[in-house]
Amino acid sequence: MSKPTDNNTMSAGGVTRQTFLRAAVGGAGVVYAAGLAYPVYRYVASPVEKAAKESAVTEVTLKDAQKLAPGSALMFKFGSRPSMLIHHDDGTWTALTAVCTHLGCTVHYQEDKKRIHCACHGGVYDPKTGANVSGPPPKPLKRYEVKVTDAGVIISRSQDRA
């Protein structure tokens, strides 16, 4: 503890000892708090970082998916995102995210009604374009590029949306 008379001793720079000490102690405290908070934050955020890495994938190959019967759909994960591959009756293919743009429920392809439906709040999407047709969804489902080969179906992030 310094004597009270020392408290206002000016140094060359015009900073009192008390101000300097306060700043030093405060600075050390901030460094400590940061040194403590950083590893804890990174530790807690580990799965978040992992998921971000996973969803950074640009291409997924679904083996043998070319055998999918026309008029039916298949669920798969694009990175960490639930997604859906539809083989239409006319032989065309569509792949899109299966996460409702309203509140994030996983949507469902209704084969009899030929539509994508969300059971949570009754949102409906067009199975060919992903456009939101009726109900609360504010945006269309994002589509992927589809390439059908003899070995499987290659799904990739569509260029225009990447």
């Binding site: 590893p39 804890v40 990174r42 530790y43 955020a45 580990s46 970082e49």
Partner: peptide
């Protein structure tokens, strides 16, 4: 081994 700073915690 797989979690950020998991070894430290």
């Amino acid at each position: 081994f797989d979690t950020n700073f998991g070894w430290l915690v």
